[in-house]
Design a binder for these strands. Structure first.
Lengths: 313, 313
DNA sequence: GAAAGCCATAGTTATTATCTATAGCATGTC
DNA sequence: GACATGCTATAGATAATAACTATGGCTTTC
């Protein structure tokens, strides 16, 4: 078995590839140029292959060098993951944690759960990013996020998910609407009711359409957020489906809209935690998801609309 | 950014986990016990976590240690892959290469291609392993094989394939059989002809059944190899489908069986090269597959059964 | 309570990583 | 064509560290 290269050497090779010059690469990794030169030469020795073409105008990787570079990046990424996993295993849910949330969840869920999380994990610093599922998943795959709160089901490769909450759909329309009223509704009643929905890209649009197999979307109008959506419903452009979580958070308060549940089996979407397969923080993502679920089960500390005094303990 | 551990430290941790004792682990990696002790302590320092519970009866990993261990194995595997990839990039198809081949290909293809490969890549040492597709793929996934020659299509995760040859199916029966004769055959003629096939697990069985959508398998008899299969056909137990490659290699020579092709579009299977996704030797596997294809196109150096002139088209 | 097994510590030595200083070699400029 | 300029390679010195030997202290076991 031949001897292995050093992580340091791989780091140097990556820097060299990025800067195209021994001198500048050396600067970037805070060593002198001879040090980096020697390390690369040593690496070439242990691998038995020339990785770099040295020229007067800098250094260029050979094809073999490119192949090794790609592997080197993976080794380094794995090593960094190891460090993160170790820290996470030592003290889970502490330090910076980059969490993505989709726009149809963020404004309704976060006010309910963030205070509880801050209490439960005082050393956790959550950095939030709000975006569409597709882009959040891209960010997970590229390690720019640690986890994401999304609506399921959603097909994606390299991503693992765990459901943490069932979010029922409610039907919403103006009081004068054909389907207005109070009691529960059969999904088939929506057969000839083109729904006003969020614009393409929002998973809620697809989930709502899936909820009522016979339903269709209005093709002439679409909303960019749930808030504009309810305003469009209010102004008579049509009816829609809303997630209960948004309604509970006060989305239609004082809007004078009729909101009706569906008959069992109720249609809805799952809210779940997602993370990159093999992520160093997968366990923490799961744990965070469970903490969120628990904070949802517990009575909401302070309703979003409120004129109420919070002041606990 | 915190500092990274050393590959050496990770290697020591793996040895420690495997031997459960500092002294014996040290022995296994050819250092003294204090050296290994210090390295593990250093590793724990850089990760900021206790990885090992030291006791009088040896050392046991903490949960954090187990998590790090798993990652460490991945880092080491990636690093070893890097070394292999570098060697492969330096001089492709040299040194030991572990190749799996399924039993319905090996005896018919290898005699034709191995001599050519030995000429073309004199420094290549091919180690062969004959087994069913499923087990070969397991071996690929576990890095016990570098590549495998199998029949496609075959669903498998973590495996990539490339087709290198089309292997047509031929119908074989005794001269007195209902479908005996000379010309080409329509696959639908097999509708009421239960076929004698290889036993379960051989992909050839599934591919043969897929080739004639209306065909069925005899459920009372099955063969364990193509050689026994033709003997069973010869003794009147039924008809079968044979890969042309096996027939060309002399499988039915002097057997007094009728062998008939199918009408276009001819049914068959693809023979392809398979390797683990991300394998360090993926490029070599592809190159080897192409070399095999070329040696198949070229006139066979020495027919398996001799005397005969192969008559194509 | 003695023996054996195991890990930690101390002190020393060997190795190796890194630095400074400088040489050598192309490339473009006047 | 001589001369800067920008690059990498080499040499020699030094600092850092990885490794060894020897030993001590702690459990477990008989």
């Amino acid at each position: 078995m031949s001897t292995l290269p050093t992580l340091r050497q791989l780091q140097f090779l990556i820097a060299l590839a990025e800067h195209g010059s021994f001198s500048r690469a050396a600067e970037a990794v805070f060593v002198t140029q001879p040090t980096l030169s020697a390390a690369i030469k040593e690496l070439e020795m242990t691998l038995g292959t020339v990785l770099v073409e040295r020229g007067a105008r800098g250094a260029v990787l050979t094809p073999a060098g490119e192949a090794v570079l790609e592997r080197a990046r993976r080794v380094m990424a794995e090593a960094e993951d190891l460090v993160i996993a170790a820290q996470a295993a030592g003290e889970p849910l502490s330090g910076p944690f980059k969490l993505g949330v989709i726009p149809t969840i963020a404004p309704f869920l976060l006010p309910r759960v963030l205070p509880a999380l801050r209490t439960q994990y005082p050393r956790l610093e959550i950095f939030l990013r709000e975006d569409l599922t597709e882009r959040l998943f891209d960010a997970l795959r590229e390690r720019r996020l640690d986890a994401a709160l999304v609506a399921l089901p959603y097909e994606a490769s390299m991503i693992e998910t765990r459901s943490i909450w069932s979010d029922e759909f409610l039907f919403a329309c103006t009081p004068g609407h054909r389907l207005s009223g109070a009691g529960s509704l059969d999904p088939d009643d929506l057969a000839e009711e083109p729904l006003l929905l969020l614009e393409d890209g929002h998973c809620l649009r697809d989930h709502a359409l899936a909820a009522c197999s016979t339903g269709t979307a209005r093709s002439d109008f679409a909303a960019t957020s749930l808030h504009t959506l309810v305003h469009m419903v209010k102004s008579g452009l049509g009816a829609t489906l809303l997630p209960r979580m948004a309604v509970d958070a006060g989305l239609v308060d004082r809007m004078e809209l009729d909101v009706r549940p569906f008959e069992p089996p109720v249609a809805g979407r799952e809210i779940g935690m997602a993370w990159r397969k093999g992520s160093a923080r997968a366990d923490e993502a799961i744990q965070l998801g469970e903490a969120i679920r628990e904070s949802l089960v517990a009575p909401a500390a302070e309703p979003a609309t409120a004129t109420e005094a919070p002041a606990p303990s």
